[in-house]
Nucleic acid binder design. Sequence first.
DNA 1: CGTCATATTGACTGGTGTCAACCAGTGTGG
DNA 2: CCACACTGGTTGACACCAGTCAATATGACG
Lengths: 250, 250
Amino acid sequence: MTRVSQKIQPFSQECNDCPIRHRAVCARCEADELTLLEQIKYYRSFEAGQTVVWAGDKMDFVASVVTGIATLSQTMEDGRRQMVGLLLPSDFAGRPGRETSAYDVTAATDLVMCCFRKKPFEELMIRTPHIGQRLLEMTLDELDAAREWMLLLGRKTAREKIASLICIIARRDASLQLNASDGELRFDLPLTREAMSEYLGLTLETVSRQVSALRKEGLIVTEGKRQIVIPDFDLLLEETGDDSDGGFLI
Amino acid sequence: MTRVSQKIQPFSQECNDCPIRHRAVCARCEADELTLLEQIKYYRSFEAGQTVVWAGDKMDFVASVVTGIATLSQTMEDGRRQMVGLLLPSDFAGRPGRETSAYDVTAATDLVMCCFRKKPFEELMIRTPHIGQRLLEMTLDELDAAREWMLLLGRKTAREKIASLICIIARRDASLQLNASDGELRFDLPLTREAMSEYLGLTLETVSRQVSALRKEGLIVTEGKRQIVIPDFDLLLEETGDDSDGGFLI
DNA sequence: CGTCATATTGACTGGTGTCAACCAGTGTGG
DNA sequence: CCACACTGGTTGACACCAGTCAATATGACG
């Protein structure tokens, strides 16, 4: 688990071509504001498994996830770990006005981040309200997601947790790529069993058992190690314990 | 559980005399901005146990908690409940830009809120950046608290959960009133066993058992039903599972 | 082929949930 | 005034879900 080696990937440096342009912290920026951001941004790439920063370490930048998935985790003294954030493309990492990272930030998959040095970003935030407004909106969304997650952690059974996680990832995948080939959903699980267990507050053995159970019952089909097919999404939704109706696609 | 009856309590209507003036969403406002807020604010009082709004119901205001404690809870179809927010004086309820409440909002104790009709508040937010800035700051704090809470829900034992909750309330109590009479901490538990169980993702029986266990071991002393004395705070802290050092008093 | 990381499965344990009885305090109405 | 109900809390007996420990698969990669 090294924290070196971030080769600059071939990637368009133009904000206008950016895949997350309309959803990230810069979403509301006008052309001139974008120019200012463009001057202080730089890209960093990480390989799957690499740590971006450790909890407590100095973090002198904030960043948007461009491609890939990052996780935020907390660790207890005796090693118990709980994931507390799952950052997908366009999500924001780091906190303006704070020196160090409160969490371990890890690349769950290969990852590209659009980074801004913290100081200039903070100054820019004061001058351009559009950034602060968008950040507030995104933080409120994060808070809602965290509260949904708390319900899962506090009250759901292992089976419901697994079904919920698969539905969450399926939804997010569907919202990015519109691969609605009939009612059947197909996507890659971007998390290892261990990462899933850290997300769900379970052991990795329980995760494995419950995934197997859902497979044996035909609620999901696995192809290879990571690929998942959901033959009937509504059927799986019923296993999450959530209200049947409340399912809005992101 | 009615939702009527909010008698206006005798309470200073002057923002300058407000006990939460320096910590609430209005904390950064200048005198002139405060005047604008003052024009659209109104107080509402609730008795312990009353519901402020139900999840899904229209909520046409946002509000600061002035005195007392409010809770945010989610309910699953079959009745399982999880608390997802604990609002203390100066904390903010409601979300600008959203019509309905996402959670049940309940008065855990007698409660006074300083309310703003949503529309005027949103318009004010656009014109006075200080409100949005402060709200962002508070939301980021809420998010951090929610993530700490997720660690508790996902990874802590019942005993650690109870110890953690008592420490959290003791800290907050100490931060409001500086009653540092020696090393001994004394305060009222503002939550019923049921509310504690909803906070912690436990049953109320388990809460009761673990509180009794801590009492029998002398880690806490109970006087009457609700009053709690902590003879040695550090000793109790060791039962939370948290890092021994990281304990900053709010 | 061996090694390593990841995943699966089994046997067993134990912590927490469930169901139920009981207690204490408070308010109510005959 | 006392019987009664009602709410909030405590304690016990027992069941069961998920954790623990361990063995075995699977696949990637040298």
